[in-house]
Amino acid sequence: MMSVFKRELVGYFKNATAYVLFAIYAFLSAMFFCYFVFLENTSFMGNLFGVWLFFVEIIVVSILAMRFFSEEKKNRTDQLLYTTPVKISGIVLGKYLAGMVLYIACTLINLVYVFIIDMFGTPDVGTIFTNFLGTFLLGAAMISIALFVSSMTENPIVAAGGTAAAFILLMMADIVANFLASKVPQWLMWLPRGLANLNLFHWFDSFSGGIIPLTAVVFYISVAASFLFLTARVLERRRWR
């Protein structure tokens, strides 16, 4: 697992993926920070983390999805991975952790904005901490979904597009749920409620407000674990097809 992890992480920097992601993240997050925090004369960063950075994270994770398995399959380097005495779970975890490290590195760019707020006002350290924690947990879930999508295609563009589409659909679950709530009878209300809960981003709300909700933590960890398991199964199944 460690070999795969190291190779992935070094690979991000070797082929400039890491620098591109840092640049995208820095540019977009700085833009959102200026518009929605700095120019609003507020030290509250909940809106930045809880709304606008979602779009940046979707872009970053979708680009990461291109590399996970699709590129390996396309370049036939997967033949090396699967014919060595490494378990598939080790390969999946190695790639996942490398993706997480890069994602966390990207999100740490936001610390710059904390320092900027500190220069002009008083940052709410507690809320900032919960926002960072929520962002890491959200990323853990998002990257596992990206890994899963990537394991199903050998086309990196499809992997990126599929991952972005999955996140956008999940985001829209709330809208569909609200629509259904006004249409379905009372006994079917569990349906829109359940649908709304599928929205990964919806679970972030409490983190934005400075709370660490246990249900959201469990939800994100469960999503991450489930999709890691599913990814390993997809890769294993591919050998049998």
């Binding site: 070999s3 795969v4 190291k6 380097t77 997967d78």
Partner: peptide, 25 residues
């Protein structure tokens, strides 16, 4: 195993690649 298309990572040096495979195996 040497497949028909060698499973090489083009963004690595030979040394890095062999060290990676050493750990992998």
């Amino acid at each position: 195993y040497l497949p028909e298309i060698p499973p090489l990572y083009m963004d690595m040096t030979v040394n890095e690649y062999l060290n990676f495979v050493f750990g992998l195996k």
